[in-house]
Design a binder for these strands. Structure first.
Lengths: 163, 163
DNA sequence: TATTGTTATACTCTATAACTATA
DNA sequence: TATAGTTATAGAGTATAACAATA
């Protein structure tokens, strides 16, 4: 295929998408991750757009749900969201009545987060469809391959052995 | 670890990042891809920031280099970049003297792209360090695991068997 | 002096839709 | 009428730096 694509170009034949040569970029983890993420987002919106819930939004609320009282900075670090950005997001969820912020007496610099009753309701109402979707993400792979893919990504991220 | 994190929270013990419970989100391909991409970008800028070259920028020029005369829309589709966005990028590279646009006589709706001499020079000067970087992306994995990871991502993307 | 969160600002990427030229 | 590219506009996500409060 490599030779063909280049020959076609040399011969002035208009290429089509499928025959486009990617070279070593096609083996780049960064390139493949970018394409995969776009693909996942498109799948997500095809499947779940009617639920008016973004992946990032649900993720943050879900992790607060699993870790009531989590410190805002720790949440940001784990989710690789900058602290300044996390402030905006949390204030947004607070404004929507989903998250409550508390400042503990023993360290008044920190902010602890938990879900309001409405936030808990939001998570439990959406968890089934959202978490169910997670298992459909990898339709093109066998179950064993899907497991292996997540295992490798977790190892790449140094997430092995963590919850 | 699941029980511990929750217990700690219930006991009011401030959690730290490493003990944060991610639940099923930690198995989500979308979540892992997002974190992995951030990680790759950070590695990239740590390693290559002095070269004043962004991954996306090099990718586009490299693929034009491999497919001289490629139609702009085909390039956009393959790289999953919206046509409107690709127009801006190509105009930018054209303004920097790296890319030339030609409109073929037989179909004057289309734009064919190729690198200028300076564009070719840019790619050949940067290819070694950029493509060399690609092979360092997966330091935390064994070579076999890195191969398997890219293979699985390519299969997920339906890129198997394409160049 | 270091940590935690906040505010302000700006930039990149991307989406959408309307538009032009061409087929 | 459909296709390819362009233009204009807006929004999301994120980065940076300066700042305040607290330790």
């Amino acid at each position: 295929m490599t030779a063909t694509a280049t020959q076609d170009q040399a011969a002035g034949v208009p290429d089509e998408v499928g025959s486009l040569e990617l070279g070593q970029i096609g083996q780049s983890l960064g390139f493949l991750l970018r394409l995969s993420q776009i693909e996942i987002f498109e799948m997500f919106y095809r499947a779940l757009s009617r639920y008016d819930m973004k992946p990032g939004e649900f993720s943050i609320l879900y992790v607060i749900h699993l870790n009531p009282g989590v410190r805002q900075g720790a949440l940001a670090e784990r989710l690789m969201i900058k602290r300044a950005h996390m402030t905006k997001l949390i204030r947004l969820y607070e404004g929507r009545g989903l998250v409550a912020r508390t400042i503990p007496e023993d360290n008044r610099r920190t902010v602890h987060l938990h879900l309001t009753d409405e936030g808990e309701r939001f998570v439990s109402e959406n968890a089934r469809v959202f978490l169910g979707y997670i298992h459909q993400e990898t339709d093109r792979l066998t179950p064993a391959e899907a497991d292996e893919l997540t295992r490798l990504l977790r190892k790449f991220l140094g997430l092995e052995g963590t919850p």
